[in-house]
């Protein structure tokens, strides 16, 4: 505990916390991307993957709580450091400032805030499935069968979701900011944790750029592909189902989702 207290008290320790939680969150970003890319396969592929996740509530909630605490730690450290940084220069410069700084580095708080806002939207959109914010209808009603068992039709939900142009636009903007955040954050975490020297730094920055671009392309490809026509037929059928069923659903709140997951 003494170690943790010492860590948290020092500005370097908080940077370690940001770097380590950054690693965890980046791991999630990659894992989540790999899961989502299954949308390019048959509908059963991603639906069975989603069903698998839901069938392991312990694992799912463990991961969710872990991620949530990483997000919290990342944000609290960031806020505290930002306050410290602001107080370190009470009066700014009139003749311009931040000479020679990498421009992405100057917008980490902004890109981070936008990503946070997006994550909240995304959770409401696809996890809590709030009907009012998706421009389509109640995703809870999208059901299909998998090996005879009724399951949520995640595939249809994604296709229908991204067929709404402004929703896709929101996602693309968020991915752009995630790209900016990662392209500075990924290499910087090596710096914060001390893994850098004159030989490795150019390699680290190059690799960070490449990885950030790959992540961006991966995520952006889904709304783009959907707008270009991916899964249009499947979605058509699902949409029909959506309008034929009654609108009310008892399980449309976050609490409802949680209850269902815990069943």
């Amino acid at each position: 505990m003494n170690l943790l207290r010492q860590l948290w008290r020092s500005s370097l320790g908080k940077k370690y916390a940001m770097a380590l939680t950054g690693v965890a969150l980046f791991g999630f970003v990659v894992g989540h991307l790999l899961g989502n890319l299954q949308v390019f396969g048959a509908p059963e592929l991603i639906n069975s993957y989603a069903h698998f996740l839901k069938s392991k509530p312990g694992l799912l909630w463990g991961a969710r709580l872990g991620l949530l605490s990483c997000v919290a730690l990342h944000i609290v450290a960031a806020v505290q450091l930002t306050l410290l940084n602001r107080s370190a220069r009470p009066i700014g410069y009139a003749g311009g400032s931040a000479y020679g700084s990498a421009w992405k580095s100057r917008y980490m708080a902004l890109s981070g805030s936008v990503i946070l806002a997006f994550v909240i939207y995304h959770l409401l959109h696809f996890t809590a499935m709030q009907p009012g914010i998706n421009g389509v209808g109640d995703f809870n009603k999208l059901k299909t069968t998998l090996a005879g068992e009724p399951v949520a039709d995640v595939y249809a939900m994604m296709i229908l979701g991204f067929q709404v142009p402004w929703v896709s636009l929101v996602y693309l903007i968020a991915q752009t900011l995630l790209f900016l955040h990662l392209s500075h954050g990924l290499s910087s975490l090596f710096q914060s944790l001390g893994f850098r020297n004159h030989v490795w730094w150019p390699r680290i920055t190059a690799a960070s750029q490449i990885v950030s671009v790959v992540v961006f392309i991966g995520y952006a490809s889904i709304p783009v592909a959907v707008l270009a026509g991916l899964g249009r037929d499947h979605a058509q059928k699902a949409k029909a189902a959506l309008s034929s069923q009654p609108l009310e659903s008892p399980e449309s709140s976050i609490a409802g989702v949680a209850k269902e997951a815990l069943k």
């Binding site: 940077k15 940084n85 220069r89 020679g100 700084s101 850098r196 730094w201």
Partner: peptide, 24 residues
């Protein structure tokens, strides 16, 4: 003093061009 956010300004203005490597 504030914390490092790896902006690189310090290295760019250092009259002796001291490297960010030392921060790592």
């Amino acid at each position: 003093f504030g914390a490092c956010t790896v902006t690189g300004s310090c290295e760019a203005v250092c009259p002796k061009s001291i490297s960010l490597d030392f921060i790592a």
